[in-house]
Design a protein around this nucleic acid. Sequence first.
DNA 1: ACCTGAACACCGTTCAAGT
DNA 2: ACCTGAACACCGTTCAAGT
Lengths: 175, 175
Amino acid sequence: MSDVKTAIMDAAERRMQLGGFGGFSFREIAADVGIKSSSVHYHFPTKENLAAAVIRRWAEETSKSIDEQLEKDPDPVRVWTKAFRGTALSEGRMCPCTVLGAASRDLPPEVATEVKGFFKMCLDKLVAAGLSASNAAEVLSTITGALVVANALGDTAAYDRATADLLRQRDVAVA
Amino acid sequence: MSDVKTAIMDAAERRMQLGGFGGFSFREIAADVGIKSSSVHYHFPTKENLAAAVIRRWAEETSKSIDEQLEKDPDPVRVWTKAFRGTALSEGRMCPCTVLGAASRDLPPEVATEVKGFFKMCLDKLVAAGLSASNAAEVLSTITGALVVANALGDTAAYDRATADLLRQRDVAVA
DNA sequence: ACCTGAACACCGTTCAAGT
DNA sequence: ACCTGAACACCGTTCAAGT
């Protein structure tokens, strides 16, 4: 992957974390990278294509990162809660799949498919770690929603309040 | 409020439930209502203004609807879980505050304020019904996230799986 | 009081043209 | 292989003009 291609994806990802699919333009990305907007199309034919590539990369990196954390901490709920918390508010690192997932019905097909794949991956990994299907859905929903609520309130502490019970239950289960 | 004004808000709301702030245009709304896009500006000077009005109305109607349901069912968790479920997937009735809340950092100030007000209202009502601040945040986050996950997966059943435990705990508590 | 058409700078996309 | 400028139909917004 060329440097330019990576730089384009980085710029797109940063903006998608704030405003989703409608939250970035080819002309802005081009200015970030230092080329013209028509040159962006050389690397990514369409906006759909670019957004899908960014989400696919995010899903792969999240998957890898979770595996690494699970080696240090065997509790999947704690690991996932921490991982999602890292994308909250500060520095605008909001999980782009959460931003896009909320508007999923209005996304181009290729992008919607990648976002769907991300959440499937999350559920699969939680189930593989021993949770029931319904417990996995509950945990994933709580941390996803906590991100949305904290983002809307502009208050990171809301994420911690929302997930406190989730973690308490695990402490009991582990103890 | 004039009929035209209401028709504009209805059209905007429908489209915001799918694609958020970037998911509708003045020209589309105008076509829906049967006027020209420059006429929409007569009723709502800016897009920010229109979106904020839609969210404010949604918050007021939700608040009223919740109060009505609480008279029939005293369990706030059951009432809120049902209310949010009603906005899932089918018919594109996705809660617009959840769609906008996920992209809150990139919203015009007036809109961001209204979205924040919606989630504050939800938390306030849950606390007024007897929940602790942290339990209220957890319940609200779980149903909000369940909406996002179900939306992304294109699977309403995911909402029910995600909230099953929430409702089970209440049954135990009530019993 | 309410609507309109024309204009502005923006947007994604295409394409012929350059190196 | 990679970049560009010009063009297209779109976007929010403004405004002078109509009734």
